[in-house]
Design a protein around this nucleic acid. Structure first.
Lengths: 114, 114
DNA sequence: CAGTATCCAGGGCGATACTG
DNA sequence: CAGTATCGCCCTGGATACTG
């Protein structure tokens, strides 16, 4: 290992990403750029308005995403990743890469045991 | 971005790491090598036997750690990271690096707002 | 030493209804 | 359109006691 990893720091990152819909929200914003509330909602089948609002607010509180309200009728609210939020991308990529290999590993285990 | 990240894969990785004590356990095993049950326990102030057992069993079920029982009296059980478990290290490092920067970022925000 | 078994509190998350 | 408000389930995790 490059150096000793500190558990507290790891958990700081983990606490940001933990939440049933947070990774999905982040990936949608990273992949598709700025999105309106209902645009996000439609792209996440199964999420309720309450949960989407809650998860967005939590990410906003951590300065991971930005929320911009346009004073129009009907209301328009746009969400986007902040520069700081983009710094999470290496973590998401590392997880994605691992997830891809994890699928293969599980298949291998099943072949061995099954 | 290098390519589109898939939410399911990211969550596969996340689901392994989520658990109040799992990152701590993994870092202990990565930093210190094979450890006995009470050795881990002593290095994690606040954890109960039940929780340590539970988290260890879950990591074992995912083939992230290995559990070896020595049929002795008194019993000896040793835990270690598997080769597969070591593949999580890039994720933990990415989280650690981010966590370090997150601390600085929070301090910066507080200076601005406070 | 290395666990189980049991009970219990808090919070995450969902379903549903209502609103500026 | 983009939210709040309320209710309730379940699951994680903690406290405590017991055991091969």
């Amino acid at each position: 290992m490059k150096y000793e990893l500190n558990a507290c720091k790891v958990e700081d990152a983990l606490s940001i990403l933990v939440g049933k819909w947070k990774p999905i929200i982040l990936l949608h914003l990273l992949n598709n750029g700025t999105q309106r509330f209902n645009q996000l909602r439609r792209s996440m089948p199964g999420i309720t308005q309450k949960m989407l609002t809650k998860q967005l607010r939590e990410l906003e509180a951590e300065d991971i995403i930005e929320r911009v309200v346009y004073p129009e009728v009907p209301p328009r609210v746009e969400y986007s990743i902040t520069e700081y939020g983009k710094s999470l991308q290496p973590i998401l990529e590392a997880m994605h890469d691992w997830g891809v290999r994890h699928t293969l590993h599980k298949q291998k285990l099943q072949t061995q045991h099954g």
